[in-house]
Design a protein around this nucleic acid. Sequence first.
DNA 1: ACTCACCCTGAAACCGCTTACAGTCGGCTG
DNA 2: CAGCCGACTGTAAGCGGTTTCAGGGTGAGT
Lengths: 340, 340
Amino acid sequence: MPSSHSPSIYEVASSAGVSVATVSRVLNAKGPVSEDARRRVLHAVETLGYVPHSAARSLSTRRTMNIGVLLPDVYGAFFSEIVRGIDLAARAAGYHVLVSGSHSDLAETSAVLQALHGRIDGLILLTAGIGAEWLRRTLPSRLPAVLLHSSEAEGGYDSIRIDNRLGARLAADHLLDLGHRRIALICGPCGNTDAAERLRGFREALAARGAPADPRLELPGDFGEESGFRAGESLAGEAEPPTAIFAANDAMAIGCLAALRSRGLRVPDDVSLVGFDDIPIARYLTPPLTTVQVPIAEIGGRALQRLVEMLQGGREIARRNDVVTPALAVRASTAAPREA
Amino acid sequence: MPSSHSPSIYEVASSAGVSVATVSRVLNAKGPVSEDARRRVLHAVETLGYVPHSAARSLSTRRTMNIGVLLPDVYGAFFSEIVRGIDLAARAAGYHVLVSGSHSDLAETSAVLQALHGRIDGLILLTAGIGAEWLRRTLPSRLPAVLLHSSEAEGGYDSIRIDNRLGARLAADHLLDLGHRRIALICGPCGNTDAAERLRGFREALAARGAPADPRLELPGDFGEESGFRAGESLAGEAEPPTAIFAANDAMAIGCLAALRSRGLRVPDDVSLVGFDDIPIARYLTPPLTTVQVPIAEIGGRALQRLVEMLQGGREIARRNDVVTPALAVRASTAAPREA
DNA sequence: ACTCACCCTGAAACCGCTTACAGTCGGCTG
DNA sequence: CAGCCGACTGTAAGCGGTTTCAGGGTGAGT
């Protein structure tokens, strides 16, 4: 039974008959220590159940060994995947992960950022929809940060982003190749740069092939299942429904699929459907969802590794703005249109 | 442009022409401060862009204002929901959330727990499958903790658990009421107490109604989609397939649904299917999944609130072992058997 | 005018750890 | 044998806050 309060390094030192400096040296493997002293210290640590107090350590080393992850919202499979990737890599590197999500507005985000001061060594920020100037104003300049999902290369910050335009083009081209001409789009939330880029890529692909651009076929959405469902209902109710639908993410595709089915439209026989993200369950839907494949967890892991490099390597590391190239996973939710 | 290093409380004090004690008093709204001094301090804080260093604060107050969340694994919608609930409540209470997942074995978990020492004020632990004695040996006795998903009332700890047996009975009774007699079960991972309880409730319900208990209809699973898919394939291949299937969680139900569909079995016409958890997409599946509804995010939120009460209320709070009662959400994946 | 309470304030002691610096000691070299 | 070097160790000064405690005003009561 250990004593009721956590022992400090002083108690370990006196129990081992050495000074605190020696205890510290043993525990951090720094500086020379005689084999005899080392043994005594380790023994004292063991019997007292000593664990260094990390706030104290942080105060003197100026490192906390934890990194912050700020998300626009903690919701759904996408979030879960990205955090999984980060957590895995963090553990390997000896870091801890402090997450925070559901930031309704920028003021709140900046409050959270403040509260994180001194609590984290680095930051991974999902910034879809956050402008570069806001970042520059709000992010402490000393805080190493990696931006995920930022729009263009945000000047001055490291970032990893998905080539959303390319992904959207892949999806649209796939549908065009199958012979579809009336293709609807379920957009993401306005203000979200990922969503905007996907919209742009989609339009470009259609324009490049001379497909009609019908503004009534671009429906609003918010990346949630519910909005996809509503869009699907609305499209199914059209006098002349589209023969294919591209949802800007998988969650909306799932909602849309449910709506189409409830309206008696079969996928892919009556309508083809493409999603974006390739969340784990996409392949288990009925029918399996054709979608733009993004290595979500891997991106999270890479972001963390990059951050650790920055933390260890100091300043001399060159900034990088990586772009991840998505691929199309063709499954059974797409087919040639009926009367093609 | 703020100076290149973060200002300390001393710089704020000298800039405001007061002592550090006064600055601290202003910032923490403790002790009397003249209106004049308060204004000067706040102004200095503003111009210097001062943010208190939380490690230093933690060292002297002995509180970190962050709580740890340990999960068996960071995966899927269930995790995401629970963290969302915790995060939301944490923000409201001024706490930060340190997550850690993917603990393959107990040794690793206990290492993580050690590393968390001094880093967190309290702990929320998803313990499905962790024994009480391990907890008592490993958890620092001073660390307030709330156990989620623990099996029985783990002596000496606060906990919130779902009544898994009841949930499973609800699901089974629903199927029995519809007239099903050959009901298959896709189990969760062995060693997981949630899974074990669900199995138990399922068997009890069948026994209570005199339904045949066929061990070949209890298939292994691991809470992942893939295992549900395999189970579904195996069941579809039977000479005499069951008329209903109860999957111990929604992810496996989704996998199973895909397998049944690919084998040409229709749900619910040929086979009824029930899941467990009611993850957000369950209602958007085709057909919408009948499932045992668990307020996942709410449970996370309650766990955090409970923890905060313990942290603020001190020792005089009575331990509680809450049980959350699930309800059955009947949707379109269940129907009376064909030849009933 | 003297006390006393009360409000406000600052000096200084912590919190627990790291680390620069200044030894101590034994053994080797010249 | 003096001198030096190198391996080891301890003392004490931070890190940046909070908090105790004593003291300096001020106004009221007598």
